[in-house]
């Protein structure tokens, strides 16, 4: 594959995404749908909120996969992140935790998920576990222990209303029409997600750690002979992915204000969507964040449709990301996965 074809494919994909959005808008206009009622400032702001947990988990998963480990357990880590935040806020602040309790909860969740992913990474990297099965196991474990913790604490799979993060409004900037309320009068966690995505991009493509990460996933032997311990790079990447997925779960809780543990829990497939997002973003953190915004918007489109009086089946709309990924993989050639993904690497020594 040549450089130019690679570039043009990324462009295709970007073009495809934009074309899709435009097509939807045109269709809506053609069908005389009240666009104004749908594309509101509130919608944009809600979409960004919904996108942040997905973006965080996606950046994490992307790092793991770039290093050669397919972390299919993002969903499970997100569940742990959400339930830990809720539990810590509840333990610290009782029925009505305050903002500090929430923030401690978020930090605590990240710490906890980091510890969990240290164990996970040890099993995968050190003991060469099967990445797919172990990742699924993390999901099952989250699906089991997440609600279990909720039942222990609240006698119910769902927590009562606890606390959600307070909006921050930046003076002056928030006065800007449209952009102001969307970007400068919102959850600080949206900014955090944006910051993480940008930082992840810089680290991946502009620092030596990013080089190592890419080499570990593409040709671990090359990295090994360059004197860098492949196992350590992969270990760090997996731990990072677990921590970020946990943060994603924490953000999800902080935006919702209560933990919901019925069915697939409140995470409800967002960990999987995160994988979709980074595939869609072609392993680029910014692309992944962009895809997350697209999916966050989709999540909220439903509400907009309802307020605009349009009936469209929820369940089918939810399928869009999955269908889109299959279309991308098929139509625009396979997404180039790092070539050593899934193979345990053993140093010769």
């Amino acid at each position: 594959m040549s450089l130019s074809s690679y570039a043009s494919r990324t462009r295709y994909r970007l073009g495809g995404g934009i074309a899709f959005v435009v097509a939807v808008l045109l269709a809506l206009v053609a069908l005389d749908v009240p666009l104004r009622a749908i594309l509101t400032v509130g919608f944009a702001e809600r979409s960004l909120r919904a996108a942040s947990p997905i973006a965080l988990a996606a950046v994490g998963g992307l790092y793991a996969e770039k290093s050669g480990v397919f972390n299919i357990g993002l969903e499970g880590f997100m569940i742990f992140g959400a339930v830990t935040t809720a539990a810590m806020a509840f333990v610290l602040g009782g029925d009505s935790p305050g903002q500090p309790d929430l923030w401690v909860g978020i930090v605590g969740a990240v710490v906890f998920c980091t510890l969990l992913s240290v164990v996970f990474a040890t099993l995968l990297v050190r003991f060469r576990g099967n990445q797919i099965v172990a990742g699924l196991a993390v999901w099952f474990i989250g699906l089991g222990f997440g609600p279990f913790i909720a039942v222990l604490l609240w006698g119910n799979r769902n927590s009562p209303g606890l606390v959600s993060v307070r909006q921050v409004s930046i003076p002056v900037l928030s006065e800007i029409p449209v952009l102001g309320p969307v970007l400068f009068e919102t959850s600080p966690l949206v900014w955090l997600a944006l910051l993480v995505a940008v930082a992840a991009w810089v680290v991946l493509f502009r620092t030596k750690y990013g080089y190592w990460l890419q080499a570990a996933g593409e040709n671990p032997e090359a990295l090994d002979t360059a004197g860098i311990d492949v196992a350590r790079v992969r270990f760090a990447a997996v731990v990072f992915s677990g921590a970020l997925a946990g943060l994603g779960g924490a953000v999800l809780f902080a935006h919702a204000g209560s933990f919901n543990g019925t069915g697939d829990t409140m995470v409800n497939g967002r960990g999987w969507i995160a994988i979709v997002a980074y595939l869609f973003g072609n392993y680029n953190p910014l692309g992944a964040a962009g895809a997350a915004v697209l999916f966050g918007g989709l999540e909220n489109l439903q509400i907009q449709f309802q307020t605009a009086g349009i009936a469209f089946p929820n369940k089918l709309m939810d399928l869009f990301p999955y269908v889109a990924v299959i279309a991308v993989l098929t139509v625009w050639g396979s997404t180039r996965m790092p070539s050593a993904v899934g193979e345990p690497y053993e140093s010769e020594d």
């Binding site: 003991f127 576990g129 099967n130 196991a137 474990i141 089991g144 222990f145 609600p147 279990f148 543990g261």
Partner: peptide
């Protein structure tokens, strides 16, 4: 809470994936 059993099954799945351990 019955969810515990789901968690335990998850753990079984996890350990099955790591024979090396």
């Amino acid at each position: 809470p019955v969810q515990l059993i789901d968690g335990i099954i998850g753990l079984v799945v996890l350990f099955v994936a790591i024979p090396e351990l």
